[in-house]
């Protein structure tokens, strides 16, 4: 396995013995996960396997019951969501997460304000942050939304909303992006552009992606981790994982796509 030659410094993000229980129920149990720097890594598993909970733990939206999160060699288990984001570990959400009553430009500009240091200025006119607009437009162009800059996010089609989310996330110039089902609920016509977009923005970044569409997974991801009932089932390349007996059993019923 190529993995065995890797040293600790090769990983952008690591989970060690990560667990989260709600009462007596473990949504995530003792999960070890290593995401190599510069790769696209998939996290898959049947519904309710604990993928979103994992994301919540990795970005500190939830506090783990046990275990550690290591980001760029640093233990971030004790930090808050906002601090984690500032360090360059940024997530998207499973349900579309735009700011519906802000324009596309404003959506992206909010994220750009995060590192601009003027976000508490209630006395300044908006011209104080106009200097961010060119960058915001650039990001919108990158995801194909240049024409929509002045539309409210709520007016966009579903696929375009997801693209806007990616532009917003990119505005923080994250080192590691966690994408929770970026293609969920999309029609076929939107799948190809979003896949392409993810491939394009992965340059110089590390991406961990939760994805149900296995053709998207196989075309994008170098390594795949499979969760089931909150526990790690297996990890490997697409071929290794798709031929694994346990995985085929776990996906019984939904196996056609494999």
């Amino acid at each position: 396995m190529e993995n065995s030659t890797a040293t600790a410094g090769d990983y952008a993000l690591e989970a060690r013995g990560l667990s989260k229980s709600f009462g007596s129920f473990y949504a995530v149990k003792d999960v070890d996960l290593k995401v190599r720097r510069g790769t696209i890594h998939a996290l898959i598993g049947p519904n309710g396997a604990g993928k979103t909970t994992c994301f919540n733990l990795l970005t500190k939206t939830l506090t783990p019951t046990a275990g550690q999160v290591i980001y760029e060699g640093r233990d971030i288990t004790g930090l808050r969501t906002a601090q984690v984001a500032k360090l360059g570990l940024v997530r998207s959400f499973q349900i579309s997460a735009t700011f519906p009553h802000l324009t596309c430009l404003e959506n992206v500009r909010v994220a750009l304000q995060s590192n601009h240091g003027k976000s508490f200025r209630f006395w300044s006119p908006l011209s104080a942050i106009r200097s961010l607009d060119p960058r915001a437009v650039e990001l919108l162009e990158q995801v194909g939304l240049a024409d929509a800059a002045h539309l409210q996010a709520t007016e966009l089609s579903y696929g375009k909303k997801r693209a806007l989310e990616i532009a917003t996330t990119l505005a923080l110039d994250p080192k590691v992006m966690l994408l929770d089902e970026p293609t969920a609920g999309m029609g076929h016509e939107d799948l190809e552009p979003i896949t392409e977009l993810i491939r394009q923005v992965s340059a110089g970044r590390t991406i961990l992606i939760v994805e149900h569409n296995l053709s998207v997974v196989s075309s994008l991801c170098e390594r795949i981790t499979v969760l089931q009932h909150g526990e790690l089932l297996t990890e490997g390349t697409y071929d290794e994982v798709s031929n694994n007996e346990d995985v085929i059993t776990a996906y019984m019923g939904g196996v056609d796509a494999l």
Binding site: H101, L102, E106, S119, R121, S124, L126, A128, I129
Partner: peptide
Amino acid sequence: SPFGEILRAIRDN
């Protein structure tokens, strides 16, 4: 204001 923009974003999500 720059602050108002963040505030509206908080209201939305």
